[in-house]
Computed example of a mutant assay.
Amino acid sequence: MGFHDVRFPVALSFGASGGPERRCEIVTLANGFEERNSPWAHARRRYDAGLGLRALEDVETVMGFFEARRGPLFGFRWKDWLDFRSAPAARPVGPLDQQIGFGDDTTTAFQLVKRYGDGPSPYLRPIVKPIAGSVRVAVGGDEIGPGEGVEVDHATGTVRFAVPPAMGEIVTAGFEFDVPARFDTETLSGSVAGFRAGTVPEIPVVEIRL
């Protein structure tokens, strides 16, 4: 699957609408009870970044980005302004935000994840496109600084340790992240609405699996 490690212009994605989509199969039984099953382990997010009345330069930027991706052929990074951090909106990102694993004296690679919900069955979302320079990692509550034996693959969201964390130590991380996405259309339709202004009413974008 083709992917370009570039970001949709963040100033133009601000204000986009969208969110997670879940696929669920529901069968109503003869006694009125239901059986529910989901073929998807993970949600897929959809967005609409349609531009209202904007400067022609903004419309040109979107059209150029669409052409450079060959429409839906190549994926790209997308900033979801409603959900792009490991921490709640009220506080800054910190190294204790999300638990990503336990040490076992053997494992050196851990996948970044974000936890949704409390209780016995939270949803763990794999984070595969963290923002370079934003990831902070801790083991046993102690932050590990850059150059201290930990590396982050910003193309996959994998955290690698030079020395495996000790048995039972909690591995945590904080980060900002993008969504891997593509255009969900083969056509962008725009118009010139006035002097040096234009519109692109719909720009559908959908999350992709990598």
Rank of each mutant, 00 (worst) to 15 (best):
P130C: 11
S86C: 04
G141Q: 04
R115G: 00
A132C: 02
P88E: 06
R160G: 01
D97E: 07
P130S: 10
R160V: 12
Q98R: 13
T107V: 09
A132V: 11
S134K: 05
V152E: 08
Q111N: 10
S121D: 14
F84N: 13
K129A: 14
P146I: 01
E151M: 07
R160H: 02
Q98N: 11
G147K: 13
P92E: 13
V137N: 08
R85N: 03
K129L: 15
D83T: 00
V113F: 02
A138W: 13
A155V: 00
P126T: 04
V137F: 07
V113R: 12
D104H: 05
V152Y: 09
W81K: 00
G145A: 15
V150N: 08
G101A: 07
S134P: 06
F161M: 05
Q99D: 00
R91G: 00
K114F: 07
E143W: 07
W78A: 02
L124R: 11
K79A: 06
F110N: 02
D105R: 10
A155Q: 13
I127Y: 05
A162I: 01
W81C: 00
T108I: 12
T106H: 15
T107R: 15
D104Q: 08
L96N: 10
V159W: 12
T107C: 06
T108H: 01
V139Q: 10
V139N: 07
T106I: 14
L96H: 07
A162F: 04
A109S: 14
Q98W: 12
R115V: 10
Q98A: 07
V150S: 08
K79V: 09
I131K: 13
L82S: 10
R136W: 05
A155N: 11
H154A: 12
P120H: 04
V113S: 00
V139M: 09
V159I: 15
D118T: 14
G141F: 06
L112W: 12
I127H: 05
F161Q: 03
H154L: 14
V163T: 15
P164D: 14
D118K: 08
I144H: 10
I131G: 02
D153M: 08
F161P: 01
A89P: 00
A109T: 13
G140N: 05
D118G: 13
D83N: 10
S121L: 13
T107E: 09
P130R: 10
Q111E: 07
V137R: 06
D105L: 03
G94F: 01
D104P: 05
L96D: 12
F84W: 12
